[in-house]
């Protein structure tokens, strides 16, 4: 019988404990400190992962893999960069590896169903608006399937999330000019895919 991770924080709202302290405690084996890190960063990890890989069914497995990788890597975390940067490098590595596996056909790639797309729609919208939004998102993710994983990640970080080139380069372990080039190529490929009309992606 496994002990469930405490959902509620063990510290009060006023206890401002920075990520570095929690990371050191978690690296020393403090599972509660790791639970605090998990709760603090789960939303951002889930949102970024969803934008990069799409609302695929295997997102939960990838989230689990990301936090397990973080737990294993925490003893090597020296604090040179922010823990957020350290964590989101893991996120993008896991996402790109998953996209590469999917493009090579090793991972399961099934068409997105309405239930998966429903997690991305606005909660307060009318049913008609939600249906139209789902249709639009399905078409968008089909276009994104044409991109290579590196270009897709760079496009998502720079064009969609609006990160500066330097920040995106730090997350993707590349230079800023390389990221800029990837975004330009991604825009060109996406425009060509949209000009072709009906997408032929595998999403």
């Amino acid at each position: 019988m496994t002990r469930p991770l405490p959902i509620q924080s063990v510290r009060g709202p006023g206890d401002a404990v920075d990520d570095m302290t929690l990371a050191r405690a978690a690296a020393a084996g403090d599972r509660r400190a790791f639970a605090d890190l998990y709760r603090r960063h789960l939303d951002s990890v889930y949102a970024r992962l969803t934008r990069v890989v799409g609302p695929a069914a295997e997102r939960d497995d990838l989230v689990q893999q990301i936090f397990l990788d973080l737990y294993r890597a925490l003893p090597r975390f020296r604090g040179d960069a922010a823990l957020t940067t350290f964590l989101h490098r893991i996120v993008l590595n896991v996402a790109c590896e998953h996209l590469e596996r999917r493009q090579r056909g090793r991972a399961r790639s099934e068409p997105l169903d309405d239930r998966q797309l429903e997690t991305l729609t606005a909660p307060g919208a009318s049913p008609e608006q939600r249906a139209r939004q789902r249709q639009e998102l399905r078409r968008l993710f089909q276009h994104l399937e044409h991109l290579s994983p590196k270009r897709r990640a760079a496009f998502m970080l720079v064009a969609v999330e609006g990160l500066p080139l330097e920040d995106a380069a730090a997350l993707l372990n590349a230079s800023a000019p390389a990221i800029k080039q990837r975004v330009l190529e991604a825009r060109r490929e996406l425009a060509e895919a949209m000009d072709r009309g009906a997408p032929e992606g595998r999403t």
Partner: peptide, 19 residues
Amino acid sequence: EARPTLDELHRARLAGAIE
């Protein structure tokens, strides 16, 4: 505009799997 959200049940399920 797409905002992936997690409800409490989903969070708890993920937390249990990681634990």
